[in-house]
């Protein structure tokens, strides 16, 4: 058990210093989360080509397409978790954006579709902001608020579209499908990188990112440092809403229809990607690349199962087991470290 006593480190000297072991551990602590996920993805891809030697550019394309909505869901969850919260309404917001896109774009041309997409992104951000505002203003714990708003947004999705249907212009779908630059670089990946970068890089470089991390790390200290904690938390939920809307659009692009119940899956899987991607659920630590890459690993699992001739229904079991194992392993390491 941790005894968070001020003097814990006191006796070793005032300044963090010395020791190659300490330095290497700190190095690992700082960079492992950064290189860990690409490494895992590379291993997973290598494994896939090993069990299925004909795994090629086309499979990469379908992997990217399949992972796209999940990657956005993971990104959405990451924003909120870094700010010290949790958002269990991500899946429902994805569903809302999905059915909104599929129902309005059905007879639209490409330009109109793009305008509609922009509108949906704004709507998503607003919905996220509403989530955040309720969390901040109502003083109800975020788990309960987002569990409930998730239920409500799910109702909204059903209201917009009762049964799967709708569609979108082919050009819009092509934004994610196929390859343009290189056969090994699917458009879906370019789209993902572009969309995440447009939101995340300014955030990370600017003051807003600092605020989000500060609030997630220690709310009281952040407040005393002059941070507007409530607006920052709302900002995090707004970003989550924005990424969720992107996820909904991505789902429309990859499936070409709207399905009011398809989103639910993404709340849990997005969280799974987050956990596997190495973002601390206590907030304040982690980046967006881990969860996004983890989304690809998670998507690869059912594919590999098919290649291995295993019932793909095992996919959910494996995903659940993976979350459980990862968090248990994390807990085990912490317990061991504290025992010393």
């Amino acid at each position: 058990m941790v005894r968070n006593d001020p003097s814990e480190k006191g006796a070793t000297g005032f300044l963090p210093s010395g020791g190659a072991r300490v330095a290497s551990m700190r190095w690992a602590g700082r960079y492992l989360p950064v290189i860990g996920m690409p490494l895992l993805l590379a291993v997973a891809l290598l494994f896939t080509t090993w069990i299925h030697p004909s795994f090629g550019a086309f499979d990469i394309q379908s992997l990217a397409l399949g992972a796209l909505p999940l990657a956005f869901a993971a990104a959405a969850q990451t924003c909120v978790v870094i700010s010290g919260g949790i958002d269990l309404s991500v899946g429902s917001l994805i569903a809302v954006a999905n059915v909104l896109a599929a129902s309005t774009m059905q007879h639209a041309d490409f330009r109109q579709a793009l305008l509609l997409a922009a509108g949906i992104l704004i709507a998503g951000a607003i919905s996220g902001a509403i989530n955040g505002a309720i969390v901040v203003l109502s003083r109800i714990p975020d788990v309960v608020v987002t569990l409930t708003t998730g239920f409500i947004w799910g109702g909204v999705a059903l209201l917009i579209m009762e049964k799967p249907g709708g569609g979108a212009p082919q050009q819009f779908l092509d934004l994610a499908a196929g390859t343009t630059l290189a056969p090994w670089l699917p458009n879906a990946v370019i789209l993902l990188i572009a969309a995440v970068a447009v939101v995340w890089i300014p955030l990370k470089l600017g003051r807003a990112g600092l605020l989000v991390y500060a609030v997630g790390s220690d709310r009281v200290a952040a407040f005393r440092s002059g941070v507007g904690v409530e607006t920052t938390r709302i900002l995090a939920y707004t970003l989550s809403g924005l990424f969720s809307a992107m996820g909904g659009l991505a789902l429309t692009m990859t499936t070409a229809i709207g399905a009011p119940l398809a989103g639910v899956y993404y709340t849990l899987s997005g969280l799974a990607a987050l956990v596997i991607g190495g973002v601390s659920l206590t907030g304040g630590r982690g980046g967006i690349s881990g969860p996004v890459l983890a989304a690809f690993v998670l998507t690869l699992i059912p594919t590999d199962l098919i290649f291995l001739n295993i019932d793909p229904n095992y996919g959910q079991v494996i995903q659940g087991t993976l979350i459980v194992l990862v968090v248990m392993l994390g807990g085990f390491v912490t317990v061991l470290r504290n025992r010393k």
């Binding site: 849990l268 229904n313 079991v317 995903q319 659940g320 968090v327 085990f332």
Partner: peptide, 27 residues
């Protein structure tokens, strides 16, 4: 075991086992 012994956050742990047991039921 997850929550008590390994000090995993209950939310994630139970989410994971929920997903897992749901999957087991599908299979």
């Amino acid at each position: 075991i997850g929550v008590a012994l390994l000090q995993v956050q209950p939310l994630v742990m139970t989410l994971g086992t929920g997903l897992m047991s749901g999957g087991v039921m599908i299979v």
